[in-house]
Write a protein that binds this DNA or RNA. Structure first.
Length: 335
DNA sequence: TTTTTACCCCGAATTACCTCA
DNA sequence: GCTGAGGTAATTCGGGGTAAA
């Protein structure tokens, strides 16, 4: 792997960049080239491939990509929030810029330095259907994303270096008065993610990449979304469980009062008619699938040898998600 | 075979940004 | 315009699992 960095002066281009489209040096405030000589899969992808062999094909494709050439225009120190919220296009971005295919075809058009020069939109690369909220960029996220992609290329042992770079860049951002900006997912993106979450609450790497590609998001964003979504689900389930336990407690308290009262009555009856009736036997049963709890009080009249049962059902435990097919079968079998 | 190391993924906690009343 | 609350994207941290050396 070759890494070349040039600040300001691109009069001496790096050799391995010769294969890539020429840039107009007058527009460049920062030029970085990354030539990957890696021909094998990274460690992480090897590991991934052990789970899913069909990823190896993708890995080979990744490693054979042409060298990366990244051009950043000198950015304006004006915070984005002070910029007009209009949809912004960056004519120097070609349409085939892609995060997921690792095909960075960023080309600078001569004379295209208009605008703030804050760079490209990492969240919505295809801006045609982007709403304004989703079209806002996230500078810090962009930085971390690039580092992640580099890490995939460079493989083992570079994580610390990348962290150092990230920390360095973060400090640079602080110096420039930049703070992390927050992406707002569009309704369509959220809806799609929700649908995916209903199908599977966790993602394997392949699903993550596919989702990211489909939604024009970075895989990390998809991953974070699913993590946060699981956390929200768990929190909601905890609240629901809490409510359920409260209702159970109330029901059981009522039942306990009733039984105490009944016991008193029976004791009183026993003193007057000692052989009339045995004490009731109360059992608790619970449906294993829906976790519905029922208390059954069975009383036997020895004189008539008849048994009477009274069942009080507690509310079924609410679930945020419907039962699976297996759970339904188990429930039907149990009932 | 066991240990060490590096990496990845996840949950939990937290931060920080954004929107809205 | 200011402010506080709520939602949520993003970050940080620690633990567990895995593969390679």
């Amino acid at each position: 792997m070759e890494l070349a960095l040039s600040l300001g002066d691109t009069s001496k281009p790096f050799k391995f960049l010769d294969k890539t489209p020429k840039l107009s040096s007058k527009d460049l405030g920062f030029c970085m080239g990354l030539g990957s000589g890696v021909t094998t899969s990274t460690r992480s992808h090897d590991k991934l491939g052990s789970h899913e062999n069909n990823h190896q094909e993708d890995d080979r494709r990744v490693s054979s990509d042409p060298p990366l050439q990244l051009v950043l225009l000198p950015f304006s120190p004006v915070p984005r929030r002070h910029q007009p919220p209009s949809k912004t296009r960056f004519p120097w971005l070609t349409d085939n810029f892609s995060w997921l295919g690792f095909e960075f075809s960023v080309v600078s058009e001569p004379g295209s330095t208009e605008g703030s020069g804050r760079g490209f939109d990492v969240n919505r690369l295809s801006m045609d259907d982007a709403d304004e909220g989703a079209a806002l960029s996230s500078p810090n996220s962009a930085a971390s994303s690039f580092q992640m992609d580099f890490g995939i290329r460079s493989g083992r042992g570079n994580k610390r270096d990348l962290e150092a770079i990230e920390a360095s860049r973060a400090s640079d951002d602080e110096e420039n008065g930049l703070t992390r900006k927050k992406l707002r997912l569009s309704k369509d993106q959220s809806a799609f993610l929700e649908e995916s979450f209903k199908e599977h609450s966790t993602l394997n790497p392949k699903q993550k990449l596919a989702l990211a590609k489909q939604l024009n998001l970075r895989p990390r964003q998809v991953e974070v979304w699913f993590q946060n979504r699981r956390a929200r689900t768990k929190l909601k389930q905890t609240e629901v469980d809490c409510e359920y336990l409260k209702r159970c407690c109330e029901t059981l308290t009522k039942e306990n009062r009733r039984l105490q009262k009944e016991l008193q009555e029976l004791r009183a009856l026993k003193t007057s008619q000692p052989f009339y009736m045995q004490l009731p036997a109360t059992t608790l049963t619970m449906c294993p699938s829906c976790e519905r709890v029922a208390t059954t009080t069975t009383t036997t009249n020895p004189s008539t040898s008849t048994t009477t049962s009274k069942t009080v059902s507690l509310p079924a435990k609410p679930r945020l998600f419907p039962m699976s097919h297996g759970q339904v079968q188990a429930h039907q079998a149990a009932s």
